[in-house]
Amino acid sequence: MNSLEVRQLAYAYPDGTQALYGVDLSIARGERVALLGPNGAGKTTLVMHLNGILTAGHGSVTVAGTPVRKDTLAEIRQRVGLVFQDPDDQLFMPTVRDDVAFGPANAGLRGEDLDRVVKGALERVGMLDAADRPPHHLSFGQRRRVAVATVLAMEPEILVLDEPSSNLDPAARRELAEILRSLDVTVLMVTHDLPYALELCERALILSDGVIAADAPTRTLLSDAELLARHRLELPYGFAIPVM
């Protein structure tokens, strides 16, 4: 069964701007897939549909066989772990510990069980030492790792990361890559950081003007300079696809 199925998804914002014009994609269990696209392609809008934050104007989203509908929202949100682009959006509680505990506590965990889950999630991202600090006292890279922990604590079926490498310095970027590689979940990584996609994902999709314009192994996609140029994507200066 696929972790994620999206069919003919279309959506317009309340101000009238249409962002998605019929998106089709599917991701198998255990895959790590990059969703590439220029600014304004509708990447974030698509992500918001994956756990029912936005409701499809047209079309459908299915997570591990369960369609995203009003009556399945609670289950869907448990299964789809969304890591937001700005960790400040994700870390809203007064301390790191409270924040990581928020999800499992909503699922009904209390006391020692809750402590264990929180500790486990913080350990997986190497942030256990910061448990009692307020989020706004952490560095940006640390905050992003805690944001990943808040989602891991929910033990999701699929991890969806929105621009995970943005604003990270090289060391923090590498550390996050190591963490992501060590996790045993399906990953959908939304990014325009092409080297990062190549490093972490076997397969890539290009979302452009609200539709999926390409779907291929990341290596093949990134080697097609003309395709990339057509969708306003560029490899960084001096970067060449390494030969296997």
Binding site: Q8, A10, A12, D15, Q18, G57, I212, A213
Partner: peptide, 11 residues
């Protein structure tokens, strides 16, 4: 208020 109908578009 103010919303327009949705448009579907192929690639």
């Amino acid at each position: 208020g103010l919303a327009k109908p949705l448009v579907l578009r192929g690639a």
